[in-house]
Design a binder for these strands. Structure first.
Lengths: 336, 336
DNA sequence: CTGTTAGCGCCTTCAG
DNA sequence: CTGAAGGCGCTAACAG
């Protein structure tokens, strides 16, 4: 169908091996031959067949990115960083979505590991089990974890503990003594944020048990609406809320407060997590914790590329990025 | 390195060909052999090498998605629809970003066509030139266009003309006689939306030239800010604005109005395009034009899959999706 | 019903 | 410096 290396060879009157060497810039080919081969390639509009190369070279020049959803802001932003870095290299990028379902995740991961379509994988937010990590190792697929951690893999994440601690400390610094927590379902990220929250409270001599703790199973706006209602219904109403479950959820909390006629930040202060673009547009604009997602994506790609250069196993690399507290209008000093 | 079809064959005492036939469910293999082969596959934990299959089968089971950016809401949402549909099939998805640069786009497109890593491509918003379409055809890569149109390709898009007409008509129906337009840079989509806008005005006996027409080169919030300022500075200030350049840009326009102390919708009405999630969260909530992005993505995948089944060329298929006007708080009746 | 042969397109020895 | 041969892992065609 297409033009192959043989066609080029025939035209020049050499063998495919010679053409191959020219393409791959191997030495010990005369300038003369080199020139003629190049010209033939030009004339025939020849381009090497990547699949065939992969087969013999045992590498695909392709990286995978797996994530539960590609609609999550975090995933999207990190993907964007990855994509940008990849475009500057000559890797390709394959996407694997797991739809947030454990069984799909299982199947997808198995497939990625064994199908050999990728040299390496960036796993965003997947709960990789040890046997899955082992499967990747056996199949010689390097894995970098983004946001989640898996034993034996490099990982890139944000320091959730300190981010949450800082957010909570900001509220305490404004004089709030009762800070509610709205957090995601069990998972390492949620745990870390809760830990940071608790650390800040304890450091201020407060007891975490004294303020409402509400779970937002889906990090959704609806979850936030319900959380907001429950916070208002608490017997001792808190004067501040830290929505560790993220900005989307925080919009729901805010909406619940507005519907109840409770003013933010006059009566209650609100802090989110993520710094999504709309955070700045809300009324009041949302104080929140920013994560350097794009940079994290680039870093994940960098680690993967480096890992692929090494033939032997390295000791896993860990990168913790710092968060940044963005103070806006949704937080203010507690009334005395 | 990994276990191959030969290992399986050797273990059972048959040839690779037999194993291959079992794997691919070809008939004329005895139940006995079939069973033994299956068992050996199980025991050895064998999995076919996709790359090797592709080489001989002349298809990669992989589809590409190319777009300028993967951070644009439209791209993201359609990608999500594509991804979902793909996950239900057994195709893989490769991403190609062009960074919005013409030369990158040129290089990427050429590479996609010639590298043969994909059987088909969904092109979101790329300006495919006829020679590029021809290049794809020569290399037997099917192409579906999403949002943009290219001669000779199937395409999926939204009816921008009628969407813009409806949005404008909504404003006119509220009694507005001077409706400004904020539109994207030249491109088929922007042209279509402007056409719809003009049609609505003309149908109401108004002259498009009488109201400000402002370009937003990057569809950005900053562009919107500037557009808003210019609208307020117009000698005869319009009472309504249609931001065909999208909701992000509309947030800028709104901000400019707020900063100037001009109340929306009391003094001026505002309509966006896209219905991004934050549109509902703005104050006032934004009236806007919704596009069924997810469904469009699924449809694009469906068309591509069908096209790949057909061996011969078909006459191009076109799908126009309808928009939906979502009326919220940013539009109200013009004062008499 | 199964084995043999040939080849997908390319690259890497090893001779010459 | 270049050609010939072998093989990456798999499948299709043809024999047996």
């Amino acid at each position: 169908m297409g033009v192959t290396i043989k066609d080029v060879a025939k035209r020049v009157g050499v063998t495919p091996a010679t053409v191959s060497m020219v393409i791959n810039n191997k030495p010990r080919i005369s300038e003369e031959t080199r020139r003629k081969v190049r010209q033939a390639i030009e004339e025939l509009d020849y381009f090497p067949h990547e699949g065939a190369r992969s087969l013999v070279l045992q590498r695909t020049n392709t990286l995978g990115v797996a994530a539960p959803f590609f609609t999550s802001y975090f995933v999207l932003e990190t993907l964007s960083g990855i994509e940008r870095a990849v475009r500057e290299s000559d890797y390709n990028l394959v996407l694997y979505g797991t739809r947030g379902l454990a069984e799909t995740e299982e199947a997808v991961v198995t497939r990625i590991a064994r199908e050999r379509k990728v040299d390496g994988l960036i796993s965003i937010n997947l709960a990789l089990k040890p046997e899955q990590v082992a499967l990747f190792q056996r199949n010689n697929v390097r894995v970098i974890c983004l946001e989640n951690e898996a034993e034996g893999c490099d990982w890139v994440r944000v320091d959730n503990v300190s981010g949450a601690r800082e957010a909570t400390a900001h509220l305490l610094g404004l004089g709030h003594r009762s800070v509610a927590l709205v957090t995601g379902p069990t998972g390492s990220v949620a745990k870390q944020r809760e830990q940071g929250y608790r650390e800040a409270l304890l450091a201020a001599g407060l007891r975490p048990e004294d303020a409402p703790r509400i779970e937002a199973p889906n990090y959704s706006r609806e979850d936030g609406l319900e959380a907001g209602a429950r916070i208002l219904a608490a017997k001792r109403r808190p004067t501040a809320v830290f929505v560790a479950a993220g900005d989307v959820c925080a919009t729901g909390v805010l909406l619940a407060f507005k519907r109840a006629g409770v003013s933010v930040p006059r009566e209650i202060s609100l802090v989110g997590f993520d710094d999504q673009p709309f955070a700045e547009l809300m009324e009041p604009a949302l104080t929140t914790v920013r994560q350097p997602m794009e940079r994290m994506g680039r870093e994940a790609f960098g680690l993967l590329r480096d890992a692929l250069k090494e033939t032997r196993e390295r000791t896993p690399v860990r990168r913790d990025f710092e968060t940044e507290l963005i103070v806006r209008g949704s937080t203010s000093r507690a009334k005395a």
